[in-house]
Amino acid sequence: MNFPNLTVVNHPLIKHKLTIMRNKDTGPKEFRELLNEITLLLTYEATRNLPTLNIEVETPIQKTIGEMVEDKKITIVPILRAGLGMMDGILNLVPNASIGFLGIFRDPETLKPVEYYLKFPPFTEDHYVFIVDPMLATGFSIKYAIEKVKEHGVNNIIVMSLLAAPEGVKNLLEVYPDVKIYTASLDEKLNDHAYIIPGLGDAGDRLFRTK
Rank of each mutant, 00 (worst) to 15 (best):
residue 36 N to Q: 13
residue 79 I to A: 07
residue 22 R to P: 03
residue 125 E to D: 05
residue 119 K to I: 05
residue 191 N to S: 10
residue 111 L to W: 09
residue 211 K to P: 01
residue 112 K to H: 11
residue 82 A to T: 07
residue 55 I to Q: 13
residue 107 D to P: 12
residue 120 F to A: 02
residue 6 L to K: 08
residue 10 N to Q: 13
residue 95 P to A: 09
residue 118 L to N: 04
residue 94 V to I: 15
residue 83 G to H: 04
residue 154 V to M: 14
residue 11 H to P: 04
residue 39 T to E: 11
residue 102 L to V: 13
residue 109 E to P: 01
residue 139 G to D: 02
residue 100 G to D: 06
residue 208 F to M: 06
residue 205 D to W: 06
residue 141 S to G: 15
residue 85 G to A: 13
residue 167 E to P: 11
residue 176 Y to Q: 02
residue 153 G to M: 13
residue 40 L to D: 03
residue 168 G to T: 02
residue 89 G to W: 06
residue 49 N to P: 00
residue 111 L to A: 14
residue 6 L to T: 08
residue 116 Y to C: 13
residue 140 F to D: 12
residue 51 P to E: 01
residue 198 P to G: 02
residue 143 K to V: 03
residue 170 K to M: 10
residue 78 P to K: 04
residue 110 T to L: 13
residue 108 P to E: 14
residue 76 I to W: 06
residue 12 P to W: 12
residue 28 P to Y: 02
residue 98 S to V: 00
residue 12 P to T: 13
residue 148 K to L: 10
residue 7 T to E: 14
residue 197 I to K: 09
residue 89 G to S: 10
residue 62 Q to K: 13
residue 164 A to E: 03
residue 19 T to R: 10
residue 52 T to A: 08
residue 65 I to G: 08
residue 145 A to Q: 02
residue 41 L to P: 02
residue 117 Y to V: 04
residue 120 F to Y: 11
residue 157 I to M: 04
residue 18 L to E: 05
residue 132 V to H: 04
residue 95 P to T: 11
residue 186 L to P: 11
residue 93 L to C: 02
residue 62 Q to Y: 02
residue 144 Y to R: 14
residue 127 H to A: 09
residue 141 S to D: 09
residue 147 E to Q: 15
residue 81 R to P: 07
residue 49 N to T: 12
residue 75 T to S: 12
residue 35 L to Q: 09
residue 152 H to S: 13
residue 158 I to P: 00
residue 166 P to Q: 14
residue 210 T to V: 09
residue 5 N to T: 06
residue 23 N to E: 06
residue 2 N to Y: 15
residue 170 K to E: 15
residue 114 V to W: 00
residue 69 V to S: 04
residue 113 P to A: 09
residue 187 D to W: 01
residue 174 E to Y: 04
residue 162 L to R: 07
residue 18 L to Q: 05
residue 211 K to W: 03
residue 42 L to W: 07
residue 211 K to Q: 05
residue 156 N to C: 08
residue 155 N to T: 14
residue 13 L to I: 12
residue 210 T to A: 12
residue 154 V to R: 11
residue 168 G to P: 12
residue 48 R to C: 05
residue 100 G to M: 04
residue 201 G to E: 11
residue 125 E to G: 03
residue 197 I to S: 04
residue 102 L to T: 08
residue 177 P to D: 11
residue 190 L to N: 07
residue 202 D to C: 10
residue 77 V to F: 10
residue 132 V to P: 00
residue 119 K to D: 00
residue 161 S to K: 04
residue 160 M to F: 02
residue 68 M to H: 00
residue 172 L to E: 02
residue 165 A to Y: 00
residue 94 V to S: 02
residue 44 Y to M: 05
residue 150 K to A: 13
residue 203 A to L: 07
residue 110 T to R: 09
residue 1 M to E: 12
residue 23 N to S: 10
residue 135 M to A: 10
residue 7 T to D: 07
residue 109 E to V: 14
residue 158 I to R: 07
residue 98 S to E: 12
residue 91 L to M: 10
residue 109 E to A: 12
residue 158 I to W: 01
residue 26 T to Y: 11
residue 43 T to G: 12
residue 90 I to Y: 12
residue 198 P to N: 09
